[in-house]
């Protein structure tokens, strides 16, 4: 990863709310992060933590209403995606920013052949004719490791297994050689042995193609294996951000620490009892004017009910949004 390079994607203070009959839900709250060329940024969080909504809002994929992107800036190169019109966004989506979604069955169209679906972005965005697109589609299927690529172009999605379908999704996302690939829980629907295949494939493709990747997942194990940097999300905001080894070796936020302890290990000592995080994830109704984790936190201060902690630096390239300092066990001076 080239240090100090200009980020390909720079998100500042992104806010998204959903308008519902019961009031507004603050799904994404002042989220800021950047993505450097060629790096893999892991985004960890539970369902409802806002990780998918963040990525959907920055590329304009959320239906509005009910969603409303209320502020912030998303710089992609020298363009602010939040200010861009629909045509511009359409030209960027699928061409310069590729997507892979969680469920490969519902994100492929069952009535078109796989070949057609890979050729679609090539013809729309790159202006290729049918013949050139077919040649490129075959190359892409070979790139993602589908055997007998030429003849499989005429197959329909149901003729592929789950792992193979996810490979097809990756081929479509990579078709136009994107600068950024956003992968939303791409291996969650797959079995572990197939997940291992896909993770190997992604590591391999990163070396060959060098695009930047945002990898959304709830699985800390997957993140540990592939990410360069990690963002931990909880209750619609970023609670911790660090390089991968720093995050796992020196977690600062009580949520990150609890999350790492609650997952049982595959090796080494076996705990007699699992550590639990008491309580439930928060409902994000109401303005975010207190720490979202306070109800489940074992290091809660009186201040946590009054103020939402800002992200403060706490190590090399490491920041966290918490008033508690694990080094001293007391409050952090911010």
């Amino acid at each position: 990863m080239p240090d100090g390079a200009l980020p390909v994607l720079d998100v500042k203070e992104l806010k998204t709310v959903f308008r519902t009959r019961r009031g507004e839900v603050h799904a994404v709250n002042s989220v800021s992060f950047d993505l450097k060329p060629g790096e893999l940024l892991g985004v960890v969080g539970e369902s409802g933590s806002g990780k998918s909504v963040t990525m959907m809002s920055l590329i304009g994929l959320l239906p509005s209403p009910p969603a409303e992107v209320r502020g912030g800036q998303v710089m992609f190169g020298d363009q602010d995606l939040l200010q861009a019109d629909d045509d511009t966004l359409r030209a960027i989506r699928g061409a310069r920013i590729g997507f892979v979604f969680q469920d490969p069955m519902t994100s492929l169209n069952p009535v078109f052949t796989v070949g057609f679906q890979i050729m679609e972005p090539l013809r729309k965005h790159m202006g290729m004719d049918k013949r050139a697109a077919r040649v490129r589609a075959k190359e892409l299927l070979e790139l993602v490791g589908i055997p007998d690529a030429a003849s499989r172009l005429t197959d329909f999605p149901h003729q592929f297994s789950g792992g193979m379908r996810q490979r097809v999704m990756i081929a479509i996302a990579l078709a136009c050689d994107p600068q950024v690939l956003i992968a939303d829980e791409p291996t969650t629907a797959l079995d572990v042995t197939i997940q291992a295949q896909i993770l190997e494939l992604v590591k391999d493709l990163r070396q060959k193609l060098g695009m930047a990747i945002v990898w959304i997942t709830h699985d800390l194990g997957v993140i540990a294996g592939i990410a360069d940097r990690v963002i931990v999300m909880y209750g619609g905001q970023i609670v911790e951000h660090a390089p991968v080894k720093e995050l796992f070796g020196n977690p600062q936020h009580p949520y990150t620490r609890a999350l790492l302890e609650t997952v049982p290990a595959m090796h080494g000592d076996r705990a007699d009892r699992l550590r639990v995080i008491q309580g439930q994830p928060p409902v994000l109704a109401g303005p975010p004017d207190a720490c979202p984790f306070r109800a489940r936190c074992s290091h809660r201060f009186e201040r946590c009910d009054r103020e939402n902690p800002p992200r403060v630096p706490c190590g090399p390239a490491h920041d966290t949004a918490c008033f508690w300092d694990p080094a001293t066990g007391g409050p952090r001076h911010v």
Partner: peptide
């Protein structure tokens, strides 16, 4: 053996 080895570990050094 393959199944157990495919499980990702939440530890970057081990990974």
């Amino acid at each position: 053996q393959a199944l157990l080895s495919a499980v990702p570990e939440p530890d970057p050094n081990l990974e």
